[in-house]
């Protein structure tokens, strides 16, 4: 397994201004695996997942310490191009955020940014991405209608398709189903499970059943005291975390004693 490490995190810390919110995180994330990040709300899960595509760069006065490597390259080194990084590391947000454009233009947005494609090639990419996101059958007859007319669940799968269209290798998902109904959630979960064949997926979720259902690895983050940064308490196979956690604090959280 060890030569299938996709992402290495070493002594990672994160600051908002002077306030340290994440500290001392070290973990290896495996290729073609679904890794869930769980923890009580406010513990920095979203901040942590935004580390991998450097979306945190947008926050003024934020600072990262330690090392985060993707395919062996420290992505916080000065000469790394965040644009290239974000092509490789796609992201799906908590609320579906399709552009107010047509379904077709939403999917084609990324490919058009990065290269000049012929019309046929672009159509092929759109169809292919929508198929992979299990949305093609529902929208193939209305590709040129506004994406905002889709239901919430469809919008979220569209956002996933949009990431697939830029050929990302890693997909970050920040509570992708938290604003959806149970049926849509089910569809998204099935989709995520299929995607792991070809992608490395990191998913933040506050829903422990969801983490247990879909992930192979689980990381538990916790802020133990107010004013202290959150730390990685335990990181292991999902099965082990949920059946036989190695840490008392994990057990407390899993069994619902706090959080």
């Amino acid at each position: 397994m060890s030569n299938n490490i996709k992402i290495k995190v070493k002594n990672y810390g994160f600051y908002y201004g002077k306030i340290k919110v994440l500290s001392d995180i070290t973990m290896d994330i495996e290729q073609n695996t679904i890794t869930a990040i769980i923890g009580p709300s406010g513990c920095g899960k979203s901040t942590f997942i935004r580390t991998f595509n450097r979306m945190n760069d947008l926050i003024a006065n934020s600072k990262v310490t330690g090392e985060v490597s993707v395919d062996g390259i420290n992505i916080y080194k000065n000469n790394v191009d965040v644009v290239e990084l974000r092509k490789k590391v796609g992201m799906v947000f908590q609320r579906p955020n399709p552009f107010p454009k047509t379904i077709y233009d939403n999917i084609a947005y990324g490919p058009r940014l990065h290269a000049r494609y012929s019309k046929q090639k672009l159509e092929h990419i759109v169809e292919d991405s929508l198929k992979k996101a299990a949305l093609w059958d529902e929208v193939k007859n209305k590709l040129h209608t506004n994406a905002l007319e889709l239901s919430g669940g469809q919008q979220q799968r569209l956002c996933i398709a949009r990431v697939l269209a830029v050929n990302s290798e890693i997909i970050l998902m920040d509570e992708p189903a938290s604003s959806l109904d149970p049926i849509s959630t089910q569809k998204i979960e099935d989709l995520i499970d299929e995607l792991k064949e070809n992608y490395t997926i990191i998913i933040v979720t506050h829903n422990m059943q969801q983490a247990a259902r879909i992930s192979q690895k689980t990381a538990f983050l916790l802020t133990e005291k107010i004013d202290e940064p959150a730390r990685l308490i335990e990181y292991d196979d999902t099965n082990k975390i949920f059946t036989n956690p190695g840490d008392k604090r994990t057990e407390n959280y899993i069994t619902g004693r706090f959080g």
């Binding site: 395919d71 062996g72 390259i73 992505i75 000469n79 790394v80 191009d81 290239e84 990084l85 490789k88």
Partner: peptide, 10 residues
């Protein structure tokens, strides 16, 4: 590694 080269800012 091609990926390494691409990673650098042009």
């Amino acid at each position: 590694m091609l990926w390494m080269e691409k990673f650098k800012k042009s």
